[in-house]
Design a binder for these strands. Structure first.
Length: 204
DNA sequence: ATAGGGATTCTC
DNA sequence: AGAATCCCTATT
């Protein structure tokens, strides 16, 4: 698996193209990570760690490779991959995934508006909805747990195809963090991918 | 445009 | 203690 212990922005870039596998009683779902955002420690005014260690964000301070799952706006879940060395807070938010397998189950959980399969995981909360992720998975080992784990596409040395390249932009929804942190280009995506949550500035 | 919804953190 | 805030989505 990709090295997650280094700088969080590098980890966020490196996770693009990796697979998320979710096993439940109703079967297996697989999706490919196509968009991420890096979040740092207390110095990062956009991060959940900006107020230091709390009961909610404690897992961010743990070893790399754990899941940090939280509830946002009272109704949506977001999945993060904890990064960096143990004792330092950082995590990569999974902002969008492209469904690969188990799509029928993802569709079943959707609202009645329907939509193309590509959009089922387009957005941090939709990714969790598609993969049936909630806070019961907070803190699990994403390389060992039987319910949810990260994997590489079989038979691919590189996570990205030759035709794919990475675009960057400012993180979404973090204006409160002040200009320095709000504009930092810590959002990463596979350029022009149909499952992106929304366009990148450089990728119109 | 805005309702929807609840935990978390801040401010007395 | 009460109030404000929040890495969003679906619907109007």
């Amino acid at each position: 698996m990709t090295d997650l212990a280094g700088p969080v922005d590098e980890a966020a870039r490196a996770l693009l193209g990796a697979l998320v596998v979710r096993d439940t009683a109703s079967g297996r779902r697989v999706a490919r990570i196509v968009e991420t955002e890096a979040y740092g420690g207390p110095e990062d005014r956009a991060s959940h760690a900006r107020f230091g260690r709390t009961t909610r964000n404690a897992v961010m301070y743990g070893p790399a490779g754990r899941a940090y799952v939280y509830l946002v706006y009272g109704l949506h879940h977001c999945l993060n991959v904890v990064c960096g060395p143990e004792g330092e807070a950082s995590a990569v938010l999974i902002r969008a995934v492209a469904p690969l397998d188990g799509v029928a189950q993802m569709r079943f959980r959707r609202g009645r508006s329907g939509g193309a399969d590509w959009r089922l995981g387009a957005g941090p909360a939709r990714a969790c909805q598609a993969l049936d992720i909630d806070r019961t998975l907070d803190g699990i080992h994403l390389l060992r747990d039987a319910r949810l784990w990260l994997a590489q596409p079989a038979g691919h040395a590189a996570l990205l195809a030759d035709t794919e390249h990475v675009v960057t932009g400012p993180r979404i929804g973090v204006d409160y963090a002040g200009p320095d942190w709000a504009t930092r280009p810590w959002r990463f995506g596979i350029a022009a991918h149909p499952s992106l949550s929304r366009p990148f500035p450089a990728d119109p």
